[in-house]
Amino acid sequence: MIALDDYHSIHESMDLRDLEYFLAVVEAKSVTGAAQRVHAAQPTLSHALARLEAELGERLLVRKARSPLSLTDAGELVAARARQALSAVTALKDDLSALRGQTSGSLRIAAIQSLSATLLPAALARLSREHPSVKPSVRTLAAESIARAVASGRADVGLLAGAPRSALRGLSVKVLFEEPLVALMRRSDPLARAKKLRLKELAERELLLVPDGTFLSDLVHEACGRAGFTPRIRLTLASAEALRETVRAGLAMTLLPEGYASPADPDLVAVPLTHPTPRREVLVVERGPGQLATPRAVAAFTALLGAPAPGRKRHL
């Protein structure tokens, strides 16, 4: 049991910023990575960790040379309580803003790489114009990591596609829209003049694709199988951006979500696909009602995610 004098000592000296720095280190698994994430000097974080451990009288982190930092049992407890404390402070600020008729507060967004590049920029610009008191931050993660970040309270809202629904259990899941894949090719390609392409027309063409086992690769293989052929893969590349730029260089064509294609692109053309049209569901995930630290900021952001492009089926 904590003595009354110790209780007052802890509460008089503990700084919320120390808790924020501690959680940044927990997520980055290194002081260096955390310092880059929170834009602070590395010694500042090291001093904050030492101060927190001294105040609590417990070692919170396991430090081993050339190994990521990990949590002690006490560190696990402090991390969980720190997230609750910081969420409570954020919720308090949000409630006070609501009394003033404002939408404000921090908004931690986690998104897969493709949506960070295609969907988020316009939404963040609108959020800044219409709700300037909301302070967003964005992390790019894999789909299942986004689900874990939202569930644990390390992110307020997630944008993803391709996560199995089992990974989203316990979260509020909404389908934002369905986005079709298109055939992306150089303007000089003979097929670039087509208004639409049956997927089977690509059976003899070499394709660029992301590696096997990824959601996009599985989606393309499943659609091609339904069209009666196995795709001929010329080369696999790690990201959709790399695929697009390799198409631009003239190696082969690819299939990508339409958000990666711009009608104004001087080099590339996106041709819609039919029979079948492969589509991905773009999802918004949040914690359940009453669990959001900044519900007004989250609601404002999801409302501003924008109208769908012509080929998308809007759900929200």
Rank of each mutant, 00 (worst) to 15 (best):
M1Y: 11
D5F: 04
I10N: 02
H11R: 13
M14V: 15
L16F: 11
D18Y: 06
L19N: 02
Y21A: 07
Y21T: 02
L23R: 06
L23D: 01
V25N: 06
V25Y: 02
V31A: 05
G33Y: 01
Q42G: 04
T44F: 10
H47E: 11
A48G: 06
R51Q: 07
L52G: 09
E55T: 13
L61K: 03
V62H: 13
K64E: 15
S67E: 11
S67F: 07
S67K: 13
L69V: 09
S70C: 01
T72S: 03
A74D: 02
A74E: 11
A79W: 01
A79Y: 00
A79P: 07
A79S: 07
A80G: 10
R81Q: 14
Q84I: 04
L86E: 00
D94H: 12
D94N: 14
D95I: 06
L99T: 00
R100A: 09
G101M: 08
G101E: 03
T103A: 12
S104R: 08
S106A: 10
S106G: 12
I109L: 04
I109K: 03
A111N: 02
S114N: 12
T118N: 09
A123Y: 07
L124V: 13
L127Q: 03
S128Q: 15
R129N: 05
H131Q: 09
P132Y: 02
K135F: 02
P136A: 02
V138L: 15
A143C: 05
A149W: 01
A151M: 07
A155W: 04
G158V: 01
L160S: 00
G162A: 07
L171T: 10
S172F: 01
E178N: 11
E179V: 03
E179K: 01
L181V: 07
L181H: 07
L184Q: 04
R187C: 05
R187K: 15
L191F: 14
R193M: 12
A194H: 10
K195H: 08
K196I: 02
E201V: 09
E204Y: 03
L207T: 01
V210C: 05
D212W: 08
V220H: 11
C224Q: 11
C224A: 15
G225D: 09
A227D: 07
A227M: 11
F229Q: 10
F229M: 08
L237D: 03
A240Q: 12
E241G: 12
A242N: 13
L243I: 06
A252K: 06
L256A: 04
E258K: 05
G259S: 01
P266F: 08
D267A: 14
A270Y: 02
V271F: 04
L273Q: 13
P276C: 09
P278G: 06
E281T: 09
V282A: 06
V282G: 01
L283R: 14
V284S: 00
V284E: 00
V285R: 06
R287H: 03
R287Q: 14
G288R: 14
G290W: 14
A293R: 10
P295I: 05
V298D: 00
V298N: 01
T302H: 08
L304T: 09
L316C: 05
